[in-house]
């Protein structure tokens, strides 16, 4: 049997029902059941499917992999990659590496927090934006840097953040 391909989060809402996503997850988890160390890859797959890790998915993973729910939660909580809150359509990442930091990254972040009215790790009520911080994107010459999804914005000023946000639907 070929493994069902996980679709990126942005595709799931309109095309695939939630029920079907859980069905897919179940098949994937069951196929990995006997593999030692299957938990992290399974969690990654689940996050790809749903865009985040809903409680129901974690309960299913715990049951199917026969791992205590507290253990699954411990792994999810350890890695910042995993999120148990739904993500917005666009992910904003503000660089807090040394170069960006000294050139005002912190002020840019503050401006974004104010503009979006969310804290780091949060998502706007309209599920449009999620806000994260990163540690050096490798573009120090362009500091301070902000990335929205795959797009990079250089030498960002706090006063310009709303302009950037307006570019995204």
């Amino acid at each position: 049997m070929t493994e069902p391909k996980a679709k990126p989060a942005s595709c799931t809402c309109s095309e695939v029902s939630e029920e079907e996503l859980y069905e897919r997850l179940k098949i994937i988890v069951q196929s990995q059941r006997t593999i030692p160390g299957a938990l992290i890859p399974v969690l990654q797959t689940a996050q790809d499917l749903f865009g985040y890790l809903p409680e129901k998915a974690l309960r299913m993973i715990s049951k199917e992999l026969k791992l205590p729910y507290s253990e699954v939660a411990g792994v999810v909580g350890f890695y910042s990659y995993f999120s148990t809150t739904p993500k917005g359509k666009h992910t904003i990442r503000v660089c807090m590496g040394t170069a960006c930091y000294v050139r005002g990254g912190q002020d840019v972040l503050k401006a974004l927090i104010k503009e979006l009215d969310i804290s780091v790790g949060g998502t706007t009520n309209d599920r449009k934006f999620s806000l994260e911080v990163g540690r050096c994107f490798g573009a120090c010459g362009l500091a301070p840097v902000v990335m929205v999804d795959d797009e990079t914005f250089q030498r960002v000023k706090p006063s310009k953040v709303s302009e950037i946000l307006n570019q995204f639907e």
């Binding site: 791992l67 205590p68 729910y69 507290s70 253990e71 939660a73 411990g74 909580g77 350890f78």
Partner: peptide, 14 residues
């Protein structure tokens, strides 16, 4: 987890 295999308690967060 290892003696009683119940699994209530784990390290959470970091």
């Amino acid at each position: 987890n290892e003696i009683q295999v119940v699994g209530s308690l784990f390290a959470q967060g970091r």
